[in-house]
Amino acid sequence: MPTDAATQQPHRPDPGVRRFGAVNWLGMWTLAEREIKRFLAVWTQTLLAPLVTAALFLLIFTLAVGTRRGDVMGVSFMHFLAPGILMMTVIQNSFANVSSSIVISKVQGNIVDTLMPPLSGGELVVGYLAGGIVRGIVVAAAIMLVMFPFIGLGVQNPLMAFVWVVMGGAFLGALGIVAGVFANKFDQIAAITNFIVVPLSFLSGTFYSLDTLPPAMRFLSHVNPVFYLIDGLRHAVLGVSDSSPWLGFAVVLGSTLAIGALAWWMFRTGYRLKS
């Protein structure tokens, strides 16, 4: 072991100094691994339940409306619904994974175990986002493998579908960080879910095309980033969309970076975390 020249004592590295360059890769990986194992430990709640819910949504809307609705944008109503329901499930689960993890840590008083290690604000954001994104990917894969073959639906562009699922998980995961840091109780995070996340996902073209909306509602849909997530995934799966996928990509990327920057600031300053 190297020694200190003045004292001839073994030189021990400062525990706060990163040992893997400018980024604490080990710390980020450990946080991400913890977040992934957390939802895998209760897979019936975090993975099986969303799959059942998505199947029920598709079944109920198809039986109640599908036979009378006819084709939408040149595809059957059942096929039109499937990508929207998939993305809606992905974003709700990504948000729930991140926000619940932070709120549970705050309520139980062990959030300090996450804040004390030498992790920067950006590294904390990436670690938490990884858990939300992976949960979204696993849920999406389960729906595509189980539900899509059952209704005879394929995916025209699997790579772009994967990109949109990742972007959906990142955007709502970042929003989940902000909500989790802001909320101090479970009823506060439930209110954010019920009054913000659910309306964003339901009023975003999941169950309808924008062509059927009046101008005012159409405008509101175009300022909703979740609309572009659903529309982009629908384009990747079916090849049809209400807007340009490139415009949607730019809107979602900009929104994710903005929310991610807010999440970074919250971790960096300890907002509602250290008091």
Rank of each mutant, 00 (worst) to 15 (best):
residue 2 P to D: 11
residue 8 Q to E: 13
residue 12 R to W: 10
residue 13 P to S: 12
residue 14 D to G: 09
residue 15 P to H: 05
residue 17 V to F: 03
residue 22 A to V: 08
residue 23 V to M: 07
residue 25 W to I: 09
residue 25 W to A: 11
residue 26 L to E: 08
residue 26 L to H: 09
residue 27 G to A: 05
residue 31 L to Y: 02
residue 40 L to M: 14
residue 42 V to E: 01
residue 45 Q to P: 00
residue 46 T to F: 09
residue 49 A to K: 06
residue 50 P to C: 13
residue 51 L to D: 08
residue 51 L to Y: 07
residue 52 V to L: 15
residue 54 A to T: 09
residue 56 L to R: 06
residue 56 L to H: 03
residue 61 F to M: 07
residue 62 T to Y: 08
residue 63 L to F: 06
residue 65 V to G: 01
residue 70 G to F: 00
residue 71 D to N: 10
residue 74 G to H: 03
residue 76 S to R: 08
residue 79 H to R: 04
residue 80 F to I: 00
residue 81 L to T: 00
residue 82 A to H: 07
residue 83 P to G: 14
residue 83 P to A: 13
residue 88 M to L: 14
residue 90 V to F: 12
residue 92 Q to N: 14
residue 93 N to A: 09
residue 96 A to G: 11
residue 99 S to N: 12
residue 105 S to Y: 01
residue 108 Q to P: 00
residue 108 Q to F: 10
residue 109 G to L: 06
residue 111 I to C: 00
residue 114 T to D: 03
residue 116 M to D: 10
residue 117 P to E: 10
residue 118 P to F: 01
residue 122 G to F: 02
residue 122 G to H: 06
residue 123 E to S: 09
residue 126 V to H: 00
residue 133 I to E: 01
residue 134 V to Y: 02
residue 134 V to K: 01
residue 137 I to T: 14
residue 137 I to M: 15
residue 140 A to W: 07
residue 143 I to H: 07
residue 144 M to F: 05
residue 149 P to M: 10
residue 151 I to F: 07
residue 155 V to L: 05
residue 164 W to F: 08
residue 165 V to H: 10
residue 167 M to P: 03
residue 168 G to N: 06
residue 168 G to F: 10
residue 170 A to P: 04
residue 175 L to K: 01
residue 175 L to Q: 05
residue 176 G to T: 03
residue 177 I to V: 13
residue 177 I to H: 11
residue 179 A to C: 13
residue 180 G to K: 10
residue 181 V to F: 05
residue 185 K to D: 15
residue 185 K to R: 15
residue 189 I to R: 12
residue 190 A to W: 00
residue 194 N to S: 15
residue 195 F to R: 06
residue 196 I to M: 12
residue 197 V to R: 05
residue 199 P to W: 13
residue 199 P to L: 11
residue 199 P to K: 06
residue 201 S to Q: 12
residue 202 F to V: 13
residue 209 S to V: 00
residue 209 S to Q: 07
residue 209 S to I: 01
residue 216 A to H: 10
residue 217 M to A: 14
residue 217 M to I: 03
residue 223 V to Q: 06
residue 223 V to I: 15
residue 226 V to W: 01
residue 227 F to Y: 13
residue 228 Y to L: 05
residue 228 Y to N: 12
residue 230 I to T: 13
residue 231 D to W: 07
residue 235 H to C: 07
residue 235 H to R: 04
residue 236 A to M: 09
residue 239 G to W: 09
residue 240 V to E: 12
residue 241 S to C: 06
residue 242 D to I: 00
residue 244 S to I: 03
residue 246 W to M: 13
residue 248 G to S: 11
residue 248 G to Q: 11
residue 256 T to D: 08
residue 256 T to W: 14
residue 258 A to M: 13
residue 259 I to N: 10
residue 259 I to G: 07
residue 259 I to L: 15
residue 260 G to R: 08
residue 263 A to P: 04
residue 265 W to T: 02
residue 268 R to S: 14
residue 269 T to G: 03
residue 271 Y to H: 14
residue 272 R to A: 14
residue 274 K to L: 11
residue 275 S to R: 06
